[in-house]
Amino acid sequence: MVSVIIPAYNVERYIGACLDSVLAQKDVDFEIIVVDDESTDSTMQIVSNYAAGHKCIRAVRRSHGGLSAVRNTALQLCHGEWITMVDSDDLLAEGALKTMLDIASSGNDIDIVAGGWKKFHGQFVPPPYRPTGITLLSGREATEIMLYKKRRHNTVNSSACGKLYRSSLWRDTTFCEGIIYEDLQLIPRLCVRARRVAVTDCTVYGYRHNENSILHTFSEQRLDALKVTEGLCRHFADDPDLYKAARSRHFSAAFNLWLLMNANRAGLPRHVASCRKIIRSLAGSQIAGGKVRLKNRIGALLQYLPFIFTSPYICKKLLSK
């Protein structure tokens, strides 16, 4: 059985479509665990109505604690051998659970299946599936790709969603509460413990793009990215290759924040200085690192030309890359 975790908070506009996309999954035994984070709109009522008509849905309401707290509550309620997570404003593609479960059940000691995803604004229409095979990686290989954030390996990312996990991986494992970037903080640590990670190019997940998301604007919460990536550096300090990858992700976090603050004319001088210090300290390793992504190399070189970043237009262009 697959346990589908859906955290919900003030998503009355989207929760119905999200639940419909999961209920439409065929040829798979699944349960849906929706944990409401004390919504102030009609989200819980909508979920309760769905639960009344579908025995596979379990609706739980808890005191407001944020996304990590809600997911942690849901993890305690799972009964499935496999777990997947769906954000309440996103959608599962048709046949997503069966696609991932078939791959997971094929042997090869697979503990995680990472599926493709597509960003959408209005209606979610997955592209036609043209299979190119399954890529098998060790947990360590997948973690390294994840930390370097290579575009050609976009499916192997640090999002908790769009993946199928063997439930035993989550024993004694919880999301860090009180921060954003909770996925980046946890998923690399989880992934490195996997025996095998299977990667498919099949689109299994629809990500609803929201221009007003906290991840597309600057706020002091965004500075959590520096703490999280610094923590990853400490966590992988005893593994030379993963340590290099974590340092690259730390550089990426600082560079993106620096661009974001310049693009929006936001952030206190001490925040800008903090990012600049990290960029300077890691620039050499980004220029010389053989596995570092191109954007980091460009950032490492451009930091010697700070006048470029006086243009919000240039900063926004670099952010989109």
Rank of each mutant, 00 (worst) to 15 (best):
T200V: 04
S252H: 14
R247Y: 04
M261P: 06
N262L: 00
R270C: 15
S219E: 06
L184I: 11
G178F: 02
A273C: 03
A253I: 05
H209N: 07
F218L: 02
Q185R: 12
S213E: 11
N210C: 07
H216D: 10
F175A: 13
Q185L: 01
L232T: 07
L294A: 13
R280Y: 00
V272T: 11
L242M: 08
T217Q: 15
C191S: 15
H250W: 07
N212V: 09
H250V: 05
L184E: 14
L223Y: 06
S213T: 07
H209V: 12
F251C: 10
Q221W: 05
T203H: 06
S213H: 11
N256Q: 14
I287P: 00
L268P: 00
C275N: 04
F218P: 10
R293I: 06
E230H: 09
H216T: 03
D201W: 03
H235V: 08
P269C: 07
R196P: 00
K227D: 15
Q286G: 01
N256L: 09
F218C: 03
E230K: 13
I187R: 04
A198R: 08
R193C: 12
L184Q: 11
R247A: 07
E177G: 09
I278E: 07
S281T: 03
P240F: 00
R270M: 14
R270K: 13
N212R: 11
M261S: 13
L242T: 08
C233H: 05
V228P: 10
A198N: 05
L215H: 14
A194T: 12
R193Q: 15
R276F: 03
Y205W: 02
S248P: 03
C176E: 13
R270F: 13
